[in-house]
């Protein structure tokens, strides 16, 4: 039996969390969600998802801090991350890519279906 793909969505806007979670579940994926940076890090260590979808502006901190702390932890450092944000800031994008993010995507550029396709491409 093929292992179920797992994804962790770190996003504090519940409307968007529900939307993306619905779409990934429709693909047959196991979806975990976290509404804050710290909860995201905790779940990453506990569940070790196959991939993480990370927002940048979180209510308890910055997504960049999440990436920095994840990188420092050898247990979870290698889990791929795709940053998905509406913050179009070149400096933040540069920092995120330097910290090992697979890609920095603007939310309004992608429908959930297009996002699923993008995320799948990083798992191949």
């Amino acid at each position: 039996m093929a292992k179920q793909t797992t994804i962790l969505i770190v996003e504090d806007e519940h409307i968007l969390v529900d939307m993306y979670a619905d779409r990934f579940r429709a693909e047959g994926w196991k979806v975990y969600t976290a509404a804050s940076r710290d909860e995201g890090l905790k779940l990453t260590k506990q569940k070790k998802p196959d991939i993480i979808l990370l927002d940048i502006l979180l209510f308890d901190g910055h997504g960049i801090e999440f990436l920095q702390r994840k990188k420092q932890d050898p247990i979870i450092a290698d889990i791929p991350v795709v940053v998905f944000s509406n913050l179009e800031d070149p400096q933040t994008k540069k920092e995120a890519l330097e910290l090992g993010t697979k890609e920095y995507l603007l939310k309004t550029d992608y429908t959930p279906q297009e996002l699923v396709a993008k995320v799948k491409s990083y798992l191949k």
């Binding site: 806007e13 968007l16 939307m19 993306y20 779409r23 309004t108 429908t111």
Partner: peptide, 10 residues
């Protein structure tokens, strides 16, 4: 706008 785009497309 992201939410509207996403839900409409779904």
């Amino acid at each position: 706008l992201t939410a509207i785009k996403g839900y409409i497309s779904m």
